[in-house]
């Protein structure tokens, strides 16, 4: 039997970590407990962050939104700030797992798991989010691409937790898109995903683009070449096809049980082509 500790505050958490420095810290348990109960992982003790209310808060500070790491996906789906200000992230969260998984899983957990297929990651990368890392000594903020160092790997230190994620409100972007390709419509791991933020002029010229892909590289894939290629061009099949080629050249997908590399490469580019219709739909509304 291993101990499971449920600290009620961050102060208490530090004391728990002092007592059990080898303990594994978890929030929703949708990833870690699957591994533990299936014998793939045998932590000495568990610390569950579920009861620390201060880690669940969502609020605005200046031009940024701070999302507590232990905010559940369901909680964020119901949060007006996330829905209105961060629509690409909101859409990504809505496609995670299933309702019970979203009730349990947290955004911090999704980030710390650092899966190449993590659904919140492409929008967070596209919005240049930063993570707030907290330890007894204080906090530091790290851009998310620096935090995630590889598949399943982060630069989180011992006795440090991910306490929040900071997202600058993506002002100036008037198209916020996220699409996930999974093998079924729920309970699916993404095979390819793409977050896209565009600033479109009224006449349909792309002024600025921020793009990020999941599941096509060891970590989230950004493609500045494609972003540059789109800048100043009309949003149309022709310009998007050119950008899509740059994306396909840049990705480094793997073949696994869910899909082969060729499929991921093709679709990573193809997803860009949808943006014309997304823009049209936006106009229609």
């Amino acid at each position: 039997m291993r101990e499971v500790i449920l600290p009620g505050s961050i102060e208490e958490l530090w004391r728990c970590l002092d007592d059990k420095p080898q303990a594994s810290v978890y929030a929703g348990g949708t990833d870690l407990l699957v591994k533990m109960y299936n014998g793939l992982f045998d932590p000495e003790a568990l610390i569950c962050l579920d009861r620390i209310e201060e880690l669940k808060e969502v609020g605005e500070q200046g031009g940024s939104i701070r999302i507590g790491a232990c905010a559940t996906h369901s909680g964020l789906l119901e949060d007006p700030l996330v829905r209105k200000r961060l629509p690409a992230l909101w859409k990504a969260i809505g496609g995670i797992g299933s309702p019970p998984v979203r009730n349990m899983g947290t955004i911090g957990g999704n980030i710390c798991t650092a899966s190449p297929a993590g659904d919140t990651l492409p929008p967070l990368y596209a919005m240049k989010a930063e993570v707030e890392l907290l330890s007894r000594e204080g906090s530091r903020r790290v851009p998310i691409p620096e935090f995630i160092t590889g598949p399943g790997a982060t630069c989180l230190k011992r006795a440090e937790i991910l306490s929040a994620v900071w997202v600058k409100k993506p002002e100036g972007y008037n198209l916020h898109h996220f699409e996930k390709v999974g093998l079924r419509s729920a309970l699916a791991c993404s095979v390819v995903s793409m977050a896209a933020l565009l600033r479109l002029r009224p006449e349909g010229i792309v002024e600025k683009a921020a793009l990020a892909w999941g599941s096509v590289a060891p970590t989230v894939f950004r493609c500045p070449e494609a972003e540059e290629a789109l800048a100043g061009k009309p949003l149309c099949a022709e310009s998007l096809s050119k950008a899509a080629e740059l994306v396909r050249d840049g990705v480094s997908p793997i073949s696994d049980l869910r899909a082969d590399a060729d499929y991921r490469r093709a679709v990573a580019g193809n997803l860009l082509l949808r943006l014309v219709d997304i823009a049209d739909e936006g106009k229609g509304r």
Partner: peptide, 8 residues
């Protein structure tokens, strides 16, 4: 309930 510890 398969992904919760009793303590939770």
């Amino acid at each position: 309930s398969c992904l919760m510890t009793a303590a939770q």
